[in-house]
C-alpha cells in the first residue's frame, strides 16, 4: 500500500465504541417511543387557534373553570393565562378522574406546569394547549407559570385540589 492510498483507519476499540454508541441511542429511543405510543405519555399536539384579543369573551373561555363531563370520571378544565394570574386560580376535581386541561393566553407567552404530573406546556397567545392527566392521590397540586411574562411572573400560580372520591 502506497503512502497516498485513501483509506479510513478505524482503531478496533473505536469501532466497538461506535457500535455501542448506536445501540445505546437506539435503546434510549425505543424507550421514549414505547412510553409515548404504547403507554400514552404524550406531548401536546396542535389543538386549535383562537384570537387572543377576544378569546376571554367567547365560550368556553368566557366562563373559565371546571366542566363535569362524566361525574367522578371525566372533567375538562378551561384556564386563561394572563399577566400575572391564572383564571381560575383554584380548581377542584375528584381523585381518579381523567382531567383534560385547555389553556390559552390573552396577552404574552406564559407557561403552565402542574406540579407532580406530566402536564407542562407553553400557553401561547392564539393557540390552545391541551393535555390530560389522572390524579391518583388526593392533595393540593400547584400550577405555576414557567415562562417569563413580566415583573410579576413569580406570583403567577394556582392550585388544583384533588378531593377524596365522594
Amino acid at each position: 500500500m502506497s503512502a497516498t492510498t485513501e483509506h479510513i483507519h478505524i482503531d478496533p476499540t473505536e469501532k466497538r465504541w461506535m457500535i455501542a454508541s448506536v445501540i445505546l441511542l437506539l435503546i434510549f429511543f425505543a424507550a421514549v417511543t414505547v412510553a409515548g405510543f404504547m403507554l400514552g405519555i404524550q406531548v401536546p399536539t396542535r389543538e386549535r387557534r383562537v384570537d387572543p384579543n377576544t378569546v376571554a369573551e367567547q365560550p368556553p373561555w368566557s366562563e373559565p373553570g371546571v366542566r363535569e363531563i362524566v361525574p367522578g370520571e371525566e372533567y375538562e378544565v378551561y384556564v386563561l393565562a394572563h399577566r400575572f394570574s391564572f383564571t381560575p386560580n383554584e380548581i377542584e376535581v375528584p381523585v381518579g378522574a381523567k382531567v383534560t386541561f385547555y389553556v390559552t393566553s390573552t396577552d404574552v407567552q406564559h407557561g403552565f406546569k402542574l406540579q407532580d404530573t406530566n402536564i407542562n406546556f407553553m400557553a401561547i397567545p392564539g393557540q390552545v394547549s391541551k393535555l390530560s392527566t389522572t390524579f391518583d392521590e388526593p392533595g393540593v397540586y400547584p400550577y405555576v407559570c414557567t415562562e417569563y411574562c413580566g415583573l410579576g411572573h413569580a406570583v403567577m400560580a394556582g392550585a388544583v385540589t384533588v378531593t377524596e372520591a365522594p
Partner: peptide, 23 residues
C-alpha cells in the same frame, strides 16, 4: 416539544434527528 402549535408527529421526527446528532 410542549408548544401547542406544532403537530406531535413533527416533534417526534425531530426527536429522532436530535438523538442522531449524539452520534
Amino acid at each position: 416539544f410542549v408548544d401547542p402549535g406544532v403537530p406531535a408527529g413533527w416533534k417526534y421526527v425531530h426527536a429522532i434527528l436530535t438523538f442522531s446528532v449524539f452520534f
